[in-house]
Amino acid sequence: MRNDVERRQRWMAVLARASCRELEQAYLDLLNAPAYVLLRPPESGLVLLQGRAGETGPSFNVGEATMTRCALKLLDGTTGFAFVLGRDQRQAELAALFDALLQRGDETASATLKVISKFERAQSMRRDLKSRKAASTKVDFFAMTQAREPK
C-alpha cells in the first residue's frame, strides 16, 4: 500500500513539473481521448511556501507562489487531481486528466505510464544539464599564505 502511495506521489510530481506543451502533445497522441466532467474547474490562487534550515530546524515562511488546481471525473467514475505552479489552467486540467488515466486498470493506464516515464526522463536530463552548467561556473576560493623568511 505504501509503495502505491509513493508511486502515485512521484507520478503527480512529474505531471506537475511537465510543461503545458508536453502535456498537450501527449493528450493529442492519445488514441481515444476520454470524455470527462470538471468537478473543480481550474482555478489559480496563492500558496504559502515554508522551508526548514538544514531540513531539521523549525519551519519558516519563505514566501508565496501562484498555484493552479483542478479536479475532474472521467465518465467511468475515475477522478483525477492536479496542483501545478503558475497560472496555466490548461496545464492543470491536462495533469488532472493524466492522473485519472493512471488510475484506470486498462491499457490506457499503461500507455499513460509510458508518457509519465518519458516526462520523468526529460525532467531528469534538464535537471542534470542545469546542474552541470552551474557546476562549471563554480569558483573555489582558498587562502594562500606566503612563507616569510625571518629577518
Rank of each mutant, 00 (worst) to 15 (best):
R2S: 11
R2I: 13
V5W: 09
V5P: 00
V5M: 13
E6K: 11
R7L: 12
R7N: 08
W11T: 03
L15C: 04
S19P: 00
C20W: 05
C20T: 07
E22T: 09
E22P: 00
L23K: 04
L23C: 06
E24V: 06
Q25M: 13
Q25I: 06
Q25R: 15
Q25S: 14
D29A: 15
L30R: 04
A33L: 11
P34A: 03
Y36C: 03
Y36H: 10
L38N: 05
L38M: 15
L38F: 08
L38T: 10
L39H: 08
P41Y: 05
E43T: 13
E43H: 11
S44E: 07
S44R: 12
G45D: 07
L46E: 10
L46I: 10
L49N: 02
G51Y: 01
R52M: 09
R52G: 02
A53C: 05
A53V: 12
A53Q: 05
G54H: 13
G54V: 02
G54Q: 10
E55A: 10
E55K: 07
E55N: 12
G57K: 06
G57T: 04
S59H: 00
F60V: 00
F60D: 00
N61R: 05
N61Y: 09
N61S: 07
V62H: 01
G63P: 09
E64W: 00
E64V: 03
A65I: 03
T66F: 15
T66D: 07
M67E: 14
M67V: 15
T68R: 06
R69K: 06
R69L: 02
A71G: 00
L72H: 01
L72D: 04
D76Q: 06
G77K: 06
G77C: 06
T78D: 04
T78A: 06
T79R: 08
F81P: 00
F81G: 02
A82V: 07
V84N: 02
D88N: 15
D88M: 06
D88T: 06
Q89M: 14
R90A: 08
Q91M: 08
Q91W: 05
L94S: 08
A95W: 02
A96V: 05
L97S: 00
D99I: 04
D99M: 04
R104A: 03
G105N: 09
S110H: 02
S110I: 05
T112A: 01
I116M: 04
S117K: 14
S117Q: 14
S117R: 13
K118N: 14
K118Q: 14
E120P: 01
R121F: 07
R121I: 13
A122R: 13
Q123H: 11
S124E: 13
S124R: 14
R126C: 04
R127P: 00
R127I: 04
S131P: 01
R132L: 14
K133T: 01
A134G: 10
S136H: 07
T137Y: 05
K138W: 01
V139G: 04
V139Y: 03
D140T: 12
D140L: 11
D140C: 09
F141Q: 09
F142H: 06
F142V: 03
A143G: 03
A143M: 09
A143L: 11
A143K: 15
T145R: 08
T145S: 12
Q146W: 13
Q146E: 12
A147L: 08
A147P: 08
A147C: 07
A147Q: 11
E149H: 12
E149M: 13
P150D: 11
K151Y: 09
K151W: 10
